[in-house]
Write a protein that binds this DNA or RNA. Structure first.
Lengths: 214, 214
DNA sequence: GTCTATAACCAGATAGAC
DNA sequence: GTCTATCTGGTTATAGAC
Protein backbone atom coordinates (compact mmCIF):
# COMPACT_ATOMS: atom_id res chain seq x y z
CA UNK A 1 0.00 0.00 0.00
CA UNK A 2 1.20 3.43 -0.86
CA UNK A 3 2.30 6.15 1.51
CA UNK A 4 0.56 9.06 -0.20
CA UNK A 5 -2.78 7.55 -1.11
CA UNK A 6 -4.83 4.70 0.24
CA UNK A 7 -6.57 3.75 -3.04
CA UNK A 8 -6.90 0.11 -4.04
CA UNK A 9 -5.60 -1.25 -7.33
CA UNK A 10 -8.07 -3.42 -9.19
CA UNK A 11 -6.69 -6.57 -10.78
CA UNK A 12 -8.44 -7.93 -13.88
CA UNK A 13 -7.48 -9.62 -17.12
CA UNK A 14 -6.19 -6.37 -18.61
CA UNK A 15 -4.21 -5.31 -15.60
CA UNK A 16 -1.06 -7.19 -16.54
CA UNK A 17 -0.27 -5.23 -19.67
CA UNK A 18 -1.66 -2.12 -18.04
CA UNK A 19 0.52 -2.50 -14.96
CA UNK A 20 3.44 -3.20 -17.26
CA UNK A 21 2.73 -0.06 -19.28
CA UNK A 22 2.32 1.99 -16.14
CA UNK A 23 5.74 0.89 -14.86
CA UNK A 24 7.38 1.91 -18.13
CA UNK A 25 5.50 5.20 -18.19
CA UNK A 26 6.49 6.06 -14.62
CA UNK A 27 10.14 5.36 -15.32
CA UNK A 28 10.13 7.49 -18.47
CA UNK A 29 8.13 10.21 -16.73
CA UNK A 30 10.61 10.37 -13.87
CA UNK A 31 13.48 10.91 -16.29
CA UNK A 32 11.53 13.54 -18.18
CA UNK A 33 10.43 15.41 -15.03
CA UNK A 34 14.02 15.42 -13.75
CA UNK A 35 15.71 16.67 -16.90
CA UNK A 36 12.99 19.12 -18.00
CA UNK A 37 11.30 20.10 -14.74
CA UNK A 38 7.55 19.77 -14.12
CA UNK A 39 6.39 22.42 -16.58
CA UNK A 40 9.11 21.62 -19.08
CA UNK A 41 8.20 17.96 -19.20
CA UNK A 42 5.88 17.22 -22.10
CA UNK A 43 3.44 14.33 -22.07
CA UNK A 44 4.20 13.88 -25.78
CA UNK A 45 7.87 13.34 -25.08
CA UNK A 46 7.09 10.75 -22.38
CA UNK A 47 4.73 9.03 -24.84
CA UNK A 48 7.49 8.97 -27.47
CA UNK A 49 9.92 7.33 -25.04
CA UNK A 50 7.54 4.46 -24.23
CA UNK A 51 6.17 4.33 -27.79
CA UNK A 52 2.54 4.87 -26.88
CA UNK A 53 0.12 7.54 -28.08
CA UNK A 54 0.01 10.59 -25.87
CA UNK A 55 -3.72 10.12 -25.25
CA UNK A 56 -3.03 6.74 -23.65
CA UNK A 57 -0.80 8.27 -21.03
CA UNK A 58 -3.51 10.78 -20.18
CA UNK A 59 -6.08 8.00 -20.22
CA UNK A 60 -4.04 6.02 -17.66
CA UNK A 61 -3.21 8.92 -15.35
CA UNK A 62 -6.02 11.44 -16.05
CA UNK A 63 -3.67 14.42 -16.37
CA UNK A 64 -0.08 15.60 -16.13
CA UNK A 65 -0.26 16.55 -12.46
CA UNK A 66 -1.57 13.14 -11.41
CA UNK A 67 1.19 11.50 -13.45
CA UNK A 68 3.73 13.59 -11.56
CA UNK A 69 2.14 12.66 -8.22
CA UNK A 70 2.28 8.99 -9.22
CA UNK A 71 6.00 9.38 -9.89
CA UNK A 72 6.54 10.96 -6.46
CA UNK A 73 4.47 8.29 -4.76
CA UNK A 74 6.42 5.49 -6.42
CA UNK A 75 9.63 7.16 -5.25
CA UNK A 76 8.51 7.36 -1.64
CA UNK A 77 7.39 3.72 -1.67
CA UNK A 78 10.79 2.72 -3.05
CA UNK A 79 12.59 4.60 -0.30
CA UNK A 80 10.35 3.28 2.40
CA UNK A 81 11.19 -0.31 1.51
CA UNK A 82 14.90 0.41 1.24
CA UNK A 83 15.56 2.51 4.35
CA UNK A 84 17.14 0.38 7.01
CA UNK A 85 15.37 0.27 10.31
CA UNK A 86 17.28 1.59 13.26
CA UNK A 87 16.49 -0.66 16.17
CA UNK A 88 16.65 0.57 19.74
CA UNK A 89 17.81 -2.87 20.82
CA UNK A 90 20.84 -2.87 18.54
CA UNK A 91 24.01 -0.92 19.23
CA UNK A 92 24.72 2.50 17.67
CA UNK A 93 27.75 1.40 15.67
CA UNK A 94 25.80 -1.33 13.93
CA UNK A 95 22.78 0.92 13.33
CA UNK A 96 24.81 3.73 11.77
CA UNK A 97 26.83 1.34 9.61
CA UNK A 98 23.66 -0.21 8.19
CA UNK A 99 21.92 3.14 7.78
CA UNK A 100 24.82 4.77 5.93
CA UNK A 101 25.48 1.70 3.76
CA UNK A 102 21.80 1.48 2.82
CA UNK A 103 21.57 5.13 1.88
CA UNK A 104 24.78 5.00 -0.17
CA UNK A 105 23.67 1.88 -2.04
CA UNK A 106 20.32 3.50 -2.78
CA UNK A 107 22.02 6.69 -4.03
CA UNK A 108 24.14 4.77 -6.52
CA UNK A 109 21.47 2.24 -7.55
CA UNK A 110 18.52 4.63 -7.88
CA UNK A 111 19.91 8.14 -8.28
CA UNK A 112 16.74 9.29 -10.02
CA UNK A 113 14.63 8.52 -6.98
CA UNK A 114 16.81 10.84 -4.94
CA UNK A 115 16.86 13.48 -7.68
CA UNK A 116 13.12 13.81 -8.20
CA UNK A 117 12.65 14.02 -4.45
CA UNK A 118 15.38 16.66 -4.10
CA UNK A 119 13.89 18.75 -6.91
CA UNK A 120 10.50 18.70 -5.22
CA UNK A 121 11.91 19.77 -1.84
CA UNK A 122 14.20 22.48 -3.23
CA UNK A 123 11.25 23.96 -5.13
CA UNK A 124 9.31 24.26 -1.89
CA UNK A 125 7.85 20.79 -1.15
CA UNK A 126 4.50 21.88 -2.60
CA UNK A 127 3.34 18.30 -3.12
CA UNK A 128 5.07 16.78 -0.09
CA UNK A 129 4.22 19.17 2.73
CA UNK A 130 1.69 16.76 4.17
CA UNK A 131 3.98 13.75 3.84
CA UNK A 132 6.79 15.66 5.55
CA UNK A 133 4.60 17.06 8.32
CA UNK A 134 3.20 13.67 9.26
CA UNK A 135 5.18 10.65 8.12
CA UNK A 136 8.72 12.03 7.84
CA UNK A 137 8.55 14.16 10.98
CA UNK A 138 7.44 11.14 13.01
CA UNK A 139 10.21 9.02 11.48
CA UNK A 140 12.88 11.57 12.42
CA UNK A 141 11.57 12.00 15.95
CA UNK A 142 11.42 8.26 16.52
CA UNK A 143 14.98 7.70 15.31
CA UNK A 144 16.26 10.75 17.19
CA UNK A 145 14.78 9.31 20.36
CA UNK A 146 16.72 6.09 19.87
CA UNK A 147 19.97 7.98 19.32
CA UNK A 148 19.24 10.10 22.40
CA UNK A 149 18.71 6.91 24.39
CA UNK A 150 22.16 5.69 23.34
CA UNK A 151 23.67 9.09 24.18
CA UNK A 152 22.10 9.00 27.65
CA UNK A 153 23.63 5.57 28.15
CA UNK A 154 27.03 7.00 27.23
CA UNK A 155 27.27 4.74 24.21
CA UNK A 156 28.07 7.54 21.76
CA UNK A 157 29.07 11.22 21.59
CA UNK A 158 26.62 13.76 23.00
CA UNK A 159 25.53 15.36 19.73
CA UNK A 160 22.17 16.51 18.35
CA UNK A 161 20.57 13.37 16.84
CA UNK A 162 18.43 15.33 14.38
CA UNK A 163 21.47 17.12 12.97
CA UNK A 164 23.20 13.74 12.74
CA UNK A 165 20.32 12.38 10.67
CA UNK A 166 20.48 15.44 8.38
CA UNK A 167 24.23 14.93 7.94
CA UNK A 168 23.78 11.28 6.99
CA UNK A 169 20.98 12.12 4.55
CA UNK A 170 22.87 14.94 2.87
CA UNK A 171 26.30 13.34 2.64
CA UNK A 172 24.92 10.11 1.15
CA UNK A 173 22.30 11.59 -1.21
CA UNK A 174 24.91 14.01 -2.55
CA UNK A 175 26.34 11.20 -4.70
CA UNK A 176 22.93 10.76 -6.36
CA UNK A 177 21.79 14.37 -6.68
CA UNK A 178 25.13 15.88 -7.67
CA UNK A 179 26.13 12.91 -9.83
CA UNK A 180 26.74 15.08 -12.90
CA UNK A 181 29.03 17.43 -10.98
CA UNK A 182 30.98 14.67 -9.22
CA UNK A 183 31.56 12.74 -12.44
CA UNK A 184 32.76 15.87 -14.23
CA UNK A 185 35.11 16.86 -11.42
CA UNK A 186 36.57 13.34 -11.27
CA UNK A 187 36.74 13.25 -15.10
CA UNK A 188 34.70 10.07 -15.36
CA UNK A 189 31.80 8.96 -17.55
CA UNK A 190 29.90 6.98 -14.94
CA UNK A 191 30.13 5.48 -11.48
CA UNK A 192 31.64 2.03 -10.97
CA UNK A 193 30.96 -0.64 -8.41
CA UNK A 194 34.19 0.30 -6.63
CA UNK A 195 32.84 3.80 -6.02
CA UNK A 196 29.96 2.42 -3.98
CA UNK A 197 32.43 0.51 -1.82
CA UNK A 198 34.87 3.39 -1.40
CA UNK A 199 32.18 5.94 -0.59
CA UNK A 200 30.51 3.57 1.87
CA UNK A 201 33.84 2.96 3.61
CA UNK A 202 34.75 6.63 3.72
CA UNK A 203 31.39 7.78 5.05
CA UNK A 204 30.89 5.02 7.64
CA UNK A 205 34.40 5.52 8.90
CA UNK A 206 34.10 9.32 9.03
CA UNK A 207 30.66 9.37 10.60
CA UNK A 208 31.46 6.72 13.22
CA UNK A 209 34.44 8.82 14.26
CA UNK A 210 32.23 11.89 14.44
CA UNK A 211 29.96 9.95 16.80
CA UNK A 212 32.96 8.75 18.85
CA UNK A 213 32.15 5.18 17.92
CA UNK A 214 35.61 4.47 16.51
CA UNK B 1 34.76 40.26 -13.65
CA UNK B 2 32.47 37.33 -14.03
CA UNK B 3 33.36 33.65 -14.02
CA UNK B 4 31.18 32.56 -16.92
CA UNK B 5 31.64 35.42 -19.38
CA UNK B 6 34.35 37.96 -19.97
CA UNK B 7 32.14 40.76 -21.35
CA UNK B 8 32.58 44.34 -20.24
CA UNK B 9 29.77 46.41 -18.72
CA UNK B 10 29.49 49.90 -20.19
CA UNK B 11 28.87 52.68 -17.70
CA UNK B 12 26.99 55.74 -18.89
CA UNK B 13 24.45 58.20 -17.49
CA UNK B 14 21.64 55.68 -17.83
CA UNK B 15 23.48 52.79 -16.28
CA UNK B 16 22.60 53.63 -12.68
CA UNK B 17 18.88 53.03 -12.99
CA UNK B 18 19.58 50.26 -15.44
CA UNK B 19 21.97 48.49 -13.07
CA UNK B 20 19.45 49.04 -10.32
CA UNK B 21 16.69 47.49 -12.41
CA UNK B 22 18.89 44.60 -13.42
CA UNK B 23 19.63 43.78 -9.77
CA UNK B 24 15.92 43.72 -8.95
CA UNK B 25 15.14 41.66 -12.04
CA UNK B 26 17.83 39.09 -11.25
CA UNK B 27 16.59 38.68 -7.70
CA UNK B 28 12.98 38.25 -8.83
CA UNK B 29 14.05 35.94 -11.65
CA UNK B 30 16.01 33.72 -9.30
CA UNK B 31 12.97 33.27 -7.08
CA UNK B 32 10.77 32.56 -10.08
CA UNK B 33 13.22 30.08 -11.63
CA UNK B 34 13.53 28.24 -8.31
CA UNK B 35 9.84 27.93 -7.52
CA UNK B 36 8.60 27.32 -11.09
CA UNK B 37 11.60 25.73 -12.80
CA UNK B 38 13.16 27.07 -16.01
CA UNK B 39 10.27 26.30 -18.34
CA UNK B 40 7.64 27.05 -15.70
CA UNK B 41 9.05 30.50 -15.00
CA UNK B 42 7.25 33.17 -16.97
CA UNK B 43 8.85 36.44 -17.98
CA UNK B 44 5.49 38.09 -17.39
CA UNK B 45 5.46 36.96 -13.78
CA UNK B 46 9.00 38.26 -13.23
CA UNK B 47 7.95 41.54 -14.83
CA UNK B 48 4.95 41.76 -12.50
CA UNK B 49 7.15 41.24 -9.43
CA UNK B 50 9.47 44.12 -10.34
CA UNK B 51 6.63 46.22 -11.78
CA UNK B 52 8.11 46.65 -15.22
CA UNK B 53 6.64 45.76 -18.61
CA UNK B 54 7.57 42.32 -19.88
CA UNK B 55 9.18 43.80 -22.97
CA UNK B 56 11.68 45.69 -20.80
CA UNK B 57 12.98 42.52 -19.23
CA UNK B 58 13.48 41.03 -22.68
CA UNK B 59 15.04 44.25 -23.85
CA UNK B 60 17.58 44.12 -20.98
CA UNK B 61 18.44 40.43 -21.28
CA UNK B 62 17.57 39.62 -24.93
CA UNK B 63 15.67 36.45 -24.07
CA UNK B 64 14.63 34.10 -21.30
CA UNK B 65 17.64 31.83 -21.61
CA UNK B 66 20.12 34.70 -21.30
CA UNK B 67 18.22 35.94 -18.25
CA UNK B 68 18.58 32.50 -16.69
CA UNK B 69 22.29 32.43 -17.52
CA UNK B 70 22.68 35.87 -15.92
CA UNK B 71 21.06 34.50 -12.75
CA UNK B 72 23.46 31.54 -12.69
CA UNK B 73 26.42 33.79 -13.34
CA UNK B 74 25.48 36.13 -10.51
CA UNK B 75 25.19 33.11 -8.21
CA UNK B 76 28.64 31.81 -9.08
CA UNK B 77 30.16 35.24 -8.56
CA UNK B 78 28.49 35.46 -5.16
CA UNK B 79 29.89 32.08 -4.14
CA UNK B 80 33.31 32.85 -5.44
CA UNK B 81 33.60 35.92 -3.24
CA UNK B 82 32.23 34.13 -0.21
CA UNK B 83 34.14 30.84 -0.26
CA UNK B 84 36.97 30.98 2.22
CA UNK B 85 40.40 30.32 0.86
CA UNK B 86 42.14 27.29 2.23
CA UNK B 87 45.74 28.24 2.66
CA UNK B 88 48.50 25.69 2.51
CA UNK B 89 50.44 27.69 5.10
CA UNK B 90 47.66 27.55 7.67
CA UNK B 91 46.86 24.52 9.79
CA UNK B 92 44.06 22.06 8.88
CA UNK B 93 41.94 22.74 11.96
CA UNK B 94 41.80 26.44 11.22
CA UNK B 95 41.15 25.89 7.51
CA UNK B 96 38.26 23.47 8.07
CA UNK B 97 36.68 25.63 10.75
CA UNK B 98 36.69 28.65 8.44
CA UNK B 99 35.53 26.65 5.43
CA UNK B 100 32.61 25.03 7.27
CA UNK B 101 31.58 28.26 9.00
CA UNK B 102 31.67 30.15 5.69
CA UNK B 103 29.55 27.58 3.89
CA UNK B 104 27.00 27.41 6.73
CA UNK B 105 26.68 31.18 6.92
CA UNK B 106 26.22 31.33 3.13
CA UNK B 107 23.56 28.58 3.26
CA UNK B 108 21.49 30.47 5.81
CA UNK B 109 22.08 33.96 4.38
CA UNK B 110 21.62 33.15 0.69
CA UNK B 111 19.69 29.90 0.45
CA UNK B 112 18.44 30.81 -3.03
CA UNK B 113 21.97 30.92 -4.40
CA UNK B 114 22.48 27.36 -3.25
CA UNK B 115 19.04 26.28 -4.50
CA UNK B 116 19.33 27.57 -8.06
CA UNK B 117 22.76 25.98 -8.32
CA UNK B 118 21.50 22.65 -6.93
CA UNK B 119 18.56 22.62 -9.36
CA UNK B 120 20.89 23.16 -12.28
CA UNK B 121 23.25 20.34 -11.22
CA UNK B 122 20.49 17.84 -10.39
CA UNK B 123 18.93 18.45 -13.79
CA UNK B 124 22.20 17.54 -15.47
CA UNK B 125 24.44 20.64 -15.28
CA UNK B 126 23.54 21.53 -18.87
CA UNK B 127 24.58 25.14 -18.46
CA UNK B 128 27.46 24.54 -16.05
CA UNK B 129 29.37 21.64 -17.63
CA UNK B 130 32.11 23.95 -18.83
CA UNK B 131 32.37 25.80 -15.50
CA UNK B 132 32.58 22.48 -13.65
CA UNK B 133 35.10 20.94 -16.03
CA UNK B 134 37.46 23.87 -15.82
CA UNK B 135 37.06 26.16 -12.85
CA UNK B 136 35.50 23.88 -10.24
CA UNK B 137 37.63 20.84 -11.08
CA UNK B 138 40.78 22.91 -10.68
CA UNK B 139 39.51 24.32 -7.39
CA UNK B 140 38.83 20.86 -5.97
CA UNK B 141 42.20 19.49 -7.10
CA UNK B 142 44.05 22.44 -5.65
CA UNK B 143 42.35 22.15 -2.26
CA UNK B 144 42.66 18.37 -2.24
CA UNK B 145 46.39 18.77 -2.76
CA UNK B 146 46.63 20.98 0.30
CA UNK B 147 44.71 18.47 2.42
CA UNK B 148 46.93 15.67 1.09
CA UNK B 149 49.96 17.68 2.07
CA UNK B 150 48.67 17.94 5.65
CA UNK B 151 47.86 14.20 5.64
CA UNK B 152 51.40 13.38 4.49
CA UNK B 153 52.73 15.50 7.35
CA UNK B 154 50.58 13.47 9.74
CA UNK B 155 48.61 16.56 10.71
CA UNK B 156 45.20 14.94 10.12
CA UNK B 157 43.51 11.60 9.45
CA UNK B 158 44.45 9.74 6.27
CA UNK B 159 41.17 10.16 4.39
CA UNK B 160 40.30 10.96 0.78
CA UNK B 161 40.43 14.79 0.55
CA UNK B 162 37.99 14.95 -2.38
CA UNK B 163 35.38 12.96 -0.47
CA UNK B 164 35.97 15.25 2.51
CA UNK B 165 35.24 18.29 0.33
CA UNK B 166 32.05 16.63 -0.96
CA UNK B 167 30.96 15.90 2.61
CA UNK B 168 31.49 19.51 3.67
CA UNK B 169 29.62 20.83 0.62
CA UNK B 170 26.67 18.49 1.04
CA UNK B 171 26.23 18.72 4.80
CA UNK B 172 26.35 22.53 4.80
CA UNK B 173 24.31 23.20 1.66
CA UNK B 174 21.63 20.84 2.90
CA UNK B 175 20.35 23.57 5.23
CA UNK B 176 19.79 25.84 2.22
CA UNK B 177 18.50 23.36 -0.35
CA UNK B 178 16.27 21.32 1.98
CA UNK B 179 15.15 24.36 3.98
CA UNK B 180 11.45 23.61 3.42
CA UNK B 181 11.82 20.04 4.64
CA UNK B 182 13.93 20.91 7.67
CA UNK B 183 11.57 23.67 8.80
CA UNK B 184 8.56 21.38 8.45
CA UNK B 185 10.22 18.54 10.36
CA UNK B 186 11.25 20.89 13.14
CA UNK B 187 7.80 22.52 13.08
CA UNK B 188 9.15 26.00 12.55
CA UNK B 189 8.24 28.88 10.24
CA UNK B 190 11.75 30.11 9.55
CA UNK B 191 15.37 29.84 10.61
CA UNK B 192 16.69 31.95 13.44
CA UNK B 193 20.13 33.35 14.13
CA UNK B 194 20.65 30.68 16.78
CA UNK B 195 20.26 27.97 14.12
CA UNK B 196 23.27 29.32 12.23
CA UNK B 197 25.33 29.12 15.40
CA UNK B 198 24.13 25.67 16.44
CA UNK B 199 24.59 24.16 13.00
CA UNK B 200 28.04 25.71 12.65
CA UNK B 201 29.06 24.31 16.03
CA UNK B 202 27.64 20.87 15.32
CA UNK B 203 29.21 20.56 11.89
CA UNK B 204 32.66 21.95 12.76
CA UNK B 205 32.81 19.75 15.83
CA UNK B 206 31.65 16.64 13.97
CA UNK B 207 33.85 17.16 10.93
CA UNK B 208 36.96 18.00 12.94
CA UNK B 209 36.48 14.75 14.85
CA UNK B 210 36.07 12.89 11.56
CA UNK B 211 39.42 14.33 10.48
CA UNK B 212 41.02 13.41 13.83
CA UNK B 213 41.62 17.08 14.54
CA UNK B 214 39.77 17.02 17.85
C1' DG C 1 -9.94 0.35 -24.48
C1' DT C 2 -7.22 2.76 -28.02
C1' DC C 3 -5.88 6.42 -30.99
C1' DT C 4 -6.45 10.67 -34.34
C1' DA C 5 -7.62 15.21 -34.87
C1' DT C 6 -8.69 19.39 -32.84
C1' DA C 7 -9.97 22.88 -29.45
C1' DA C 8 -8.46 26.16 -26.10
C1' DC C 9 -4.83 28.19 -24.00
C1' DC C 10 -0.51 30.39 -22.75
C1' DA C 11 4.17 31.83 -23.31
C1' DG C 12 8.16 33.98 -25.73
C1' DA C 13 9.34 37.10 -28.81
C1' DT C 14 8.87 41.09 -31.87
C1' DA C 15 6.99 45.07 -34.67
C1' DG C 16 6.25 49.49 -34.37
C1' DA C 17 4.22 53.72 -31.91
C1' DC C 18 5.90 57.02 -28.69
C1' DG D 1 15.03 53.79 -24.40
C1' DT D 2 10.28 52.35 -23.24
C1' DC D 3 5.96 50.08 -23.79
C1' DT D 4 1.47 48.22 -26.22
C1' DA D 5 -0.40 45.06 -29.26
C1' DT D 6 0.16 41.13 -31.86
C1' DC D 7 2.13 37.02 -34.00
C1' DT D 8 3.65 32.41 -33.67
C1' DG D 9 4.58 28.05 -31.76
C1' DG D 10 3.90 24.60 -28.56
C1' DT D 11 1.21 22.50 -24.74
C1' DT D 12 -2.63 20.09 -22.27
C1' DA D 13 -6.73 18.06 -22.67
C1' DT D 14 -10.71 16.29 -24.97
C1' DA D 15 -14.17 14.91 -28.57
C1' DG D 16 -15.23 11.42 -31.23
C1' DA D 17 -13.96 7.64 -34.73
C1' DC D 18 -12.56 2.90 -34.47
Amino acid sequence: MSILSKGKTKINKHSITRADNQEKILKAAREEFISQGYKGASVQSIADKVELPKANILYYFDNKEKLYLAVLEQTLDMWDKEIDHIDVNGDPKDAIEKFVAGKVRMSFKEPNASKIYALEIIQGSQHLKEYTRTYLRAWVREKAKIFQHWIDQGKMADIDPVKLIFLIWSSTQHYADFESQILTIMNRAEYEESDVIEVTEFLTDFILRGCKLK
